[in-house]
Write a protein that binds this DNA or RNA. Structure first.
Lengths: 203, 203, 203, 203
DNA sequence: ACGTAAGCGAGACGGTACGTCGCGTCTTACC
DNA sequence: GGTAAGACGCGACGTACCGTCTCGCTTACGT
C-alpha cells in the first residue's frame, strides 16, 4: 500500500489480487484459501503476489484497513451530542457492514479468521471508548474505573460484533435501523427488558 | 473416543497426546501446532497420532467435547428458581473456565481457533436458551418472537464470551463471582447503568 | 518348515498362508503383495504370519524349495545314459513347470521377483552342470576350461529359462514334449539351423 | 524428458538426479534405493525429485530409454550383409554394455529390477527380429512360422542376456570380442559343439 | 520518441507438514 | 501353545503450499 502506488500497473494488479481474495474467502473461507489460488484467480503470477504482499495475512490486513477507514470516515466525528435516542451511529455501522456484507460475512463467519474478528473487535472497542469518553467528559462528577470501564466496553463490543455476525449469518433479515435499535435496547435496558420479560430473573 | 477404550495402552496414549496438544497450544497457539510436534511432545510416534485422530482438529474436538460435558454437568439442571440476583449459574461458568483457564485462553485467544470459539458460543446460546425457556414458561402471558429471542440470546452469549475472553487475556484479575456480577449487571441494567452513568446516552 | 511341524494347527496355518501367497502372486505379482494381504487372505492374523516367516521372501523361498525338491525328484538320478535324442529330462522339466504353471508364471513373469528367477536359473545351472560333468567324465580325453564351461552353462540355463517364460506367457500353446524338442534343437544345432535357415548368417 | 528441456537448471538437476540414482543402484541395488536417498545424493530436495519424476521407476525408465537409444544408434542400420562370421553387431552390443557396465550390472543383477531386464530382453528380441527378417527376406523360399520364429528369437535373446549378465557379474573377464564370439558360437553350433564335446549328448 | 527500468510470467528450488501405508516387534487375553 | 486383536515405533511414500529466487520479455515512463 505504500511502495507500489508508483505504477498504474501495480495498482491494477493489487486490485485484481484483492478482488480474488474476497471472492475466494466468500467461497471457501479464509483459512482454506492459498496464495496459489489467489494468484490463479486474479489472474496473476504467484510470484507477483509476493511482490506486493508478504502473505495472505498481509493482504487481508490491507483490505481490513481500507474497510475500517471507510467505516471511521462514515461514522464522522465522535464528539457529537449523544442521546439515548440517537442510534444513528450504530445504524451507520450496520449500513456499512451491509454494504460490505459479503466480505464481513466471509471474514467473521466461523470459517473466517479469528484474527480478523479480533481486529474488528478492537476497533469497536476503540470507537466505543471514544464515545464513552465524550460522554464521561460531559459528566464532571462521574468517578472512573479504567479497568471496569474497559471490561464494559469489551462486553459492549462483543455484543455488537455478535449482532453483526448474527445479522450476516441470517442474511440480514432486518434493516440496519432495526438492528441498531435492538443493540441499543440491549445496551440501555439490559437483556431481560429487551426481551420484554422485565419481571423475570436470570439464573 | 469410542474405539479405543478397549486397550489400556491406547487410553494412556490418548491422554499423552491430549496433554501434549494442550501444552503446545498454550505455548504457540493452535494454528501453529503441528502433528509432528504433538507426537514429539507426547512422546509418541507420529503414525500413532494418526491411529487415534484424523488430524489435530479431531483431537481438539475431542478435548472440547470433554470440557463442555464437564461444564454442562457442573451447571446442573436448568429449571431452577431464577432471580435477578441469582448469579450462581454464571459464577459456576467462570469457575469452570478458570479451572481450565490455560486451555480456554489458548483456544479463545486471537491465536485460538475460530471454530472452537464458534462451538463454545453455540453452546452458550443453547444454555441460555434453556434458561430463558424456563423463565418464559413461568410467564404464561408472555408473547414470544422466536427470531427476536434468538438475536437477544446471541447477543447475550457474545457478551459472555467476551467477558470470558477479557478475563483470560487479563489473567483473571477478578474472582469468578465478580465476573458473574459484572455480566449480570450488564445483562439486567444495560451498559450505561452498569457504568454508573445512567443519565448519559449512547451515540 | 522346521520348528513348526509340532502342531497340526501350525501345519494347517502354513498351508493357508502359502496358498494365500500363491493366489495373490497370481493376481497382482509378487512385488505388490503385502504381508497384510497374505494374512487377510489366509485368513490368519498378521502376527501369526510372522510367527512362521520372517517376511514374504522367506515364505516364497520355502515354496520355491518345495517346488525345486519336487523337480529334482522328478528328474531322477543324473548319471543316466544321455543321447542327443533323449530329451526326456527336459520334457520332465516342462511337465513339472506345467503342473505348477500358475506359480511359475506368477514368479517368472515381469511382475515376478528377480530373485526368484535368479534362484531358478542357478538351480538350472546346477542341474546342467551335473549332467555335463557326467558327460565329460565319460570322455576322458576332453580338456576342460572351468570358466568357459561355466559361461556355456549359464547361456544354456538362460535359454531354458527363456523357453519356460515364453511358454508360460503364451499360456503353453505347445506340449511339454514340443518345448523340450525346441530347446534341444536350439542347443544342439544352434539358432539358425533351428530356424531352418542354416545357410543364413547372423549380423 | 520433454517438458524440462526449457530450463537449463532443470536440465542440470535431472542430470544430478540421474547420476545419483546410478550411483545408488550400484551400491545397494535398485529395490533398496529410496527417493529420499536419491535426493540427498543428488543433492537436491526431495520435492524437487518429484517435480521431474513421478517415482523412481519413471527415473530409471528415462535412463533406460536413453541407454537403449544409444545402443540402437550404435548398432547402425540393420539391413546389412550378415555372415556367419560377422559378429560385429554383437561385439558392438557388448562394447556398449561394457561402456555402461556399472549401470547394466546394477540393473541386471539379482538386485536389479525385473522390469528393466524384461525391457532389455524385449529390446533384444526386437533387434534380433529385425536382423532375422533381413536374412529371411534374402531367402525367398524359406517357410515361416511366426510363432516358432518368435520362440527361437526369445531363446536367443535370453541367451544373450544371460551372456551379458554373466559377463558383468564376473567383472568382464574377457573382451567384448570374445564374448561376441562365444555367443555366436553357441548360436551357430549349439551348446555341445561350443563346449567342444560334439559327440556327447544331452540328458 | 524512445531507451530504460519497472512490472510481470514462467518456473526452479529448498523446505515443512501433511496423511497414508507397510513393515516387524510386542503385549494381552482367549481357548 | 497357538491364535486373535491390536498398539507401537519406524521409515518411506507422494502431495500440497510455502516463500525465495533467476531469467527473459514487454510495456509504459521519464527525460
Amino acid at each position: 500500500m505504500s511502495h507500489r502506488k508508483g505504477g498504474l500497473q501495480g495498482e491494477r494488479t493489487c486490485k485484481l489480487i484483492r478482488r480474488a481474495l474476497i471472492e475466494l474467502v466468500e467461497e471457501k473461507g479464509f483459512a482454506e484459501v492459498t496464495v496459489g489460488e489467489i494468484a490463479a484467480r486474479a489472474p496473476v503470477n504467484r510470484a507477483t503476489f509476493y511482490r506486493y504482499y508478504r502473505d495472505k495475512y498481509a493482504l487481508v490486513e490491507e483490505i481490513f484497513q481500507d474497510v475500517v477507514s471507510e467505516l471511521s470516515a462514515g461514522l464522522g466525528p465522535t464528539g457529537q451530542v449523544a442521546t439515548r435516542e440517537r442510534i444513528v451511529g450504530w445504524e451507520r455501522l450496520f449500513e456499512h457492514v451491509g454494504r460490505h456484507h459479503r466480505l464481513y460475512a466471509a471474514l467473521l463467519g466461523r470459517r473466517g479468521d479469528p484474527w480478523f474478528a479480533a481486529r474488528l473487535r478492537e476497533r469497536c472497542v476503540e470507537l466505543a471508548r471514544d464515545r464513552l469518553r465524550t460522554v464521561q467528559d460531559a459528566i464532571p462528577g462521574a468517578g472512573r474505573d479504567a479497568e471496569s470501564d474497559d471490561l464494559q466496553l469489551v462486553l459492549a463490543a462483543n455484543m455488537i460484533l455478535g449482532a453483526i455476525t448474527w445479522w450476516l449469518e441470517h442474511h440480514r433479515p432486518r434493516s440496519a435501523h432495526d438492528m441498531a435499535e435492538a443493540v441499543v435496547r440491549f445496551a440501555t435496558q439490559g437483556y431481560f427488558d429487551a426481551l420484554g420479560i422485565g419481571t423475570a430473573q436470570p439464573g
